[in-house]
Amino acid sequence: MAEQEKNRISVEIYGHTYKIVGTESTGHMRLVASMVDDKMREISMNNPSLDSAKLAVLTAVNSVHDLLKLKEQVEALEEQVKKLKG
């Protein structure tokens, strides 16, 4: 199986530059970085005493929480579709 072409970009997240490598489009990777930056800044505004490491962990916890809630919603919708088809 051929390996997908990898894109490499530099992004800024919370004042730091990171090099990101991935098979997604550069636009997608920039959007992800922008969303992480926005979430970190939002959390920082509400918790100005957090250091960068704690801020990053809290951002990750919030992001995974959001992901799990979305998965639950998708599962509930899939169940509704099954019922409608059945």
Rank of each mutant, 00 (worst) to 15 (best):
M35L: 08
H65M: 14
L67A: 11
V36L: 07
A53F: 13
L55D: 12
D38R: 01
L70Q: 12
D37A: 03
G27T: 11
M29P: 11
R41M: 01
M40C: 01
R30L: 12
S25C: 10
S52R: 15
H65V: 13
K71Y: 09
A56S: 14
K69H: 09
N62P: 09
D38Y: 00
E42V: 04
A53G: 13
S63Y: 07
A60V: 08
L31S: 10
A53S: 14
M45Y: 05
H65R: 15
K54T: 13
K39P: 02
S44D: 05
N46L: 02
L50V: 04
P48W: 00
I43N: 06
E42Q: 11
A60Q: 03
S34A: 06
R41F: 03
A60S: 06
M35I: 03
S25V: 08
R30K: 15
V32W: 05
L68P: 00
L67K: 13
T26P: 15
L50W: 07
L58P: 00
L31Q: 04
S44A: 04
K71S: 11
K71A: 06
M40H: 03
M29H: 06
L31D: 07
G27V: 06
A56H: 11
V36C: 01
K71Q: 12
D51E: 14
H28V: 08
D37V: 00
I43L: 13
S34F: 03
I43E: 04
H65A: 15
A33H: 05
V61T: 07
D37Y: 01
S34C: 00
L70G: 09
S25M: 10
G27A: 13
L68F: 10
L58G: 05
L55A: 07
R30A: 12
D37N: 02
T59R: 13
N47A: 00
L67E: 09
D51F: 10
A60N: 09
G27Q: 14
R30C: 06
L55C: 10
I43W: 06
M40D: 01
T59H: 12
L31Y: 04
S63Q: 08
M35D: 01
G27I: 08
S25F: 04
L58F: 10
H65W: 13
E42K: 13
N62V: 04
M45C: 05
L31A: 12
M29E: 04
R41L: 02
L68V: 08
D38H: 00
K54S: 15
V64D: 07
S44Y: 03
K39V: 04
L68N: 10
N62F: 06
V57Q: 07
H65P: 08
G27P: 07
N46H: 05
L67R: 07
V36A: 04
R30H: 13
R41G: 01
K69Y: 03
S63V: 06
H28Q: 12
S34Y: 02
V61D: 05
T59A: 15
T59F: 09
A33N: 08
V36E: 01
E42S: 10
K39I: 04
A53T: 14
